[in-house]
């Protein structure tokens, strides 16, 4: 049976059903529904909810909970997500699992609370210090929010690495019917890394794993190469015969899909690649495609994802950007841009 939920609530409930029993977080728009929902839901399932004094403290609490073997998470938005980077680096360095959601709003500094996609660089290329990556999933619907959240907890444990859900104000605030996952059980005593006191055995310590490795450089390279090879996720729509392939994630991919359908109805051969994993970037989605142009569409003024598109397609065709920061684009704007690009490519369209 489907339930009508906000994206933020679907994230919170899916996490509970994935066995998450620890949440520590701080209020920030447009993410606060996660705290509000979990403040009542966590106690119902015997879990821990803490409204932390800051994001710095919140992610550190998550670090402690993850070290104890619990499925643990936090969530924030841009300014707070910046503060989470310290702890994310520590958790990645200690190879512990956790899930972090960033509900993107637009802008640097205080910015504003309307939707945006300007945290791509911070999420995908790490706001934290050092040699690590976080696996990043970008949902484009409330249903996908629930599905990716469940997947994120499993993937975090499989790879022993933080996983980021990179949402945006639109996906997190929209309401839609969602099929929630079944309630799963997670045994916090089961993971090999779970601290519970050494008992009669050997003690365990969680710190940067590099201290206890002879060949760390090669190890960490191999770890992320494996993720890049095996964990790419994307959706391709009508790309095979496309003259122009749009590339967009999250809320922008929904605008692009509508623009693509509308353009197709008018006989224009338009396709769409929708990256679901932003790290690893789905470079395989671009294999064998030979359009006249790629168009990266994103709600950032500087074109944060566009250069990943250029790398992924090997510049076999020109890569254009459609950007929106404080000014957001609509479906008809994207269609107009498609016309401009193909017109330029053909001389006339």
């Amino acid at each position: 049976m489907k339930e009508l939920m906000k994206g933020n609530e679907a994230f919170a409930e899916a996490a509970i059903r994935a066995g998450c029993r620890f949440f520590a977080g701080y209020p920030i728009t447009p993410q606060s529904e996660v705290l509000e929902y979990l403040s009542r839901r966590m106690p119902e399932v015997g879990g821990v909810f803490i409204q932390s004094e800051s994001e710095l403290a919140g992610i550190s609490m998550v670090y402690g909970a993850a070290a104890a073997g619990f499925r643990a998470m936090t969530s924030s938005s841009g300014p707070g997500y910046s503060l989470l980077q310290e702890g994310i680096s520590y958790i990645a360095s200690a190879e512990l699992p956790c899930v972090v959601m960033d509900v993107m709003r637009y802008g640097s500094g205080l910015g504003d609370i309307f939707t945006g996609q300007s945290d791509y660089w911070q999420a995908v290329y790490n706001g934290g210090h050092g040699d690590y990556r976080t696996i990043v999933y970008a949902p484009s619907s409330v249903q996908e929010m629930a599905d990716l959240t469940v997947m994120a907890f499993g993937k975090a444990e499989e790879r022993r690495n933080p996983v980021t859900i990179l949402s945006d104000a639109s996906i997190s605030q929209m309401m839609a019917p969602v099929e929630l996952p079944a309630m799963a059980c997670h045994d916090p005593d089961a993971p090999a890394w779970a601290l519970k006191g050494k008992g009669n055995g050997h003690f365990k310590r969680h710190t940067s794993v590099m201290y206890y490795m002879n060949e760390y450089d090669g190890y960490v390279r191999a770890k992320y190469e494996k993720i890049e090879k095996e964990d790419q996720r994307w959706e391709s729509l009508e790309t095979e015969d496309a003259e122009i392939v749009l590339v967009a994630y999250g809320i922008s991919s929904r605008i692009c899909e509508e623009a693509m359908r509308s353009a197709r109805a008018q006989g224009r051969r338009v396709g769409l690649i929708r990256p679901i994993s932003l790290y690893p970037y789905p470079v395989n989605a671009f294999d064998g495609l030979a359009p006249r142009a790629f168009l990266s569409v994103e709600m950032s003024a500087l074109g944060q994802m566009a250069r990943d598109v250029a790398l992924a397609c090997g510049m076999r065709a020109p890569v254009y950007s459609m950007l929106g920061g404080t000014r957001l684009y609509s479906c008809s704007d994207v269609e107009a841009r498609i016309g401009e690009i193909l017109g330029a490519a053909h001389g006339a369209f």
Partner: peptide, 10 residues
């Protein structure tokens, strides 16, 4: 804060 995460879980 890390200790709080540990203690609340354990």
């Amino acid at each position: 804060a890390v200790a709080v995460g540990l203690k609340r879980c354990r």
